[in-house]
Computed example of a mutant assay.
Amino acid sequence: MQLYPLFRKALFSRDAEWSHDFTLRQLQHCNSGPLHKLIYQRLPVKPVNVLGLTFPNPVGLAAGLDKNGTCIKALAALGFGFIEVGTVTPKPQQGNDKPRMFRLPEHEALINRMGFNNDGVDALVARVQEAGFKGILGINIGKNKDTSEADGNLDYLYCLEKVYPHASYVTVNISSPNTPGLRAFQHGTHLTSLLAALKQKQQTLTQEHMKYVPILVKISPDMDKEQILGFAQAIQEHDIDGVIATNTTLDRSKVESAEHANEAGGLSGQPLTDRSTQVIKWLREALPDSIPIIGAGGISSPDQAKEKLAAGAQLIQIYTGFIYQGPALIKSIVNSL
């Protein structure tokens, strides 16, 4: 693990998406066998009981790193208390044109406009079954780019049915800025229609599989307080199990001078820290304690993790901070809690 700064230096000399794909290919070799033991980090158990599940520690991996579920066991070996894979869509899709991922190292940030590139839900489910992972696994679902807003609910319901037997929880991604029209599902009748359909499907699948799988919704940091409070009311009315706050932002006010600041896509990392924490605070004020929040966005230190928890999150997720700091970040956060 001490070698990560050297490893990062080599990776950061290459294109961001090439480095991402290369790293995943190497991690695939670490899912089992001697290499699995080589990357294993033994961390103290600091359990958190949320969503009817016992998380061995509150530090999870956010969706987007392992979209296709190729490295689940390797990532878990690094010490994550839970892994979230995806976003996955009904049909495979290539995503947006390359280049579509950019580093802003002076801000410890990334901009991506990947566009839900993934192998499709059937391929993901097959890999999850093959992995046989016994830890807590979240599966993040979305809609295909060529699916109309009018038919968007059908994509989410299709994916929910496919992943339900294999997930510890399911995250509904309606907040990526990189699929046209997706964020419309965060508001008004789009939102209430989707939540009602998901809840009805969840009830049916619970009876079918004799297993209750919680549904969480991942939201954008770009909504104002009034919109956040409206969202909070809707998920209470439809008995949704939890919220992940937040996804990436379109705001560039904190990175205006950066080389890639004008690239289209969602910004993640340090520039997002304060905004995502504010969204968590608004949600916590509006939601009962029975609806948990997973805090994500700009966590790259134990203090920032504690800020998210103090704001009202029960669990946290990291991604961009993990890219910049490596497995040592997981260990330092868990040890500090």
Rank of each mutant, 00 (worst) to 15 (best):
L124H: 01
E130R: 08
R113N: 13
G120D: 03
P99A: 06
F102I: 11
E108N: 12
A131N: 08
G115L: 14
N118C: 12
P105E: 12
R127Y: 08
V125G: 10
K98T: 09
N96K: 09
P99Q: 08
L104E: 11
G120C: 04
G115Y: 13
G120K: 00
G120A: 08
Q129I: 15
A123S: 04
K134L: 13
G132K: 03
N112S: 13
M114E: 14
D119N: 12
A131Y: 01
G95V: 02
G95Q: 11
D119I: 04
A123V: 10
P99G: 06
F102P: 11
G120T: 06
E108G: 02
K134G: 11
N118G: 08
I111M: 09
D119K: 11
V125T: 13
E130M: 08
V125L: 14
N118F: 10
R103G: 10
L110Q: 07
L110D: 05
V121S: 05
D122R: 01
N117S: 09
E106R: 13
I111A: 00
M101Y: 01
R103D: 07
R113D: 06
E108Q: 15
V128R: 00
N112E: 12
V125F: 07
G120Y: 04
K134I: 07
G95T: 11
N96M: 08
Q129E: 15
R127E: 01
A123W: 02
E108W: 00
R113W: 07
F116T: 07
D119T: 05
A109S: 04
K134D: 15
L110V: 06
R113G: 06
P105S: 11
D122F: 02
F133L: 06
I111W: 01
M114V: 14
G115S: 14
E106T: 13
D119W: 01
A126Y: 02
A109C: 01
F116L: 06
D119L: 14
G95I: 08
D122H: 09
Q129R: 15
A123M: 06
H107T: 00
K98D: 00
A123G: 02
E106A: 15
Q129T: 13
G132N: 06
A109L: 07
N112Y: 08
R127W: 07
L124N: 00
L110K: 02
L104S: 12
G132V: 04
F116Y: 13
L124E: 01
F102C: 12
R127I: 12
P99W: 04
D119V: 05
G132L: 05
K134F: 01
Q129M: 14
A109R: 05
I111D: 12
N117I: 12
P105H: 09
M101A: 15
R113A: 13
G115W: 12
E108T: 09
N117P: 10
N118R: 03
N96D: 09
H107C: 10
D119H: 11
A126F: 01
L104I: 14
G132W: 04
G95L: 11
A131P: 03
K134V: 09
D97R: 13
G132Q: 03
L110H: 05
E108C: 02
K134T: 15
G132M: 08
A123R: 00
L110T: 00
G132P: 04
A123T: 04
G132I: 03
D97A: 15
D119G: 08
A131S: 15
F133C: 07
G115D: 13
K134C: 09
N117C: 07
N112A: 01
Q129S: 13
P105N: 10
R103N: 09
N112L: 06
M114I: 15
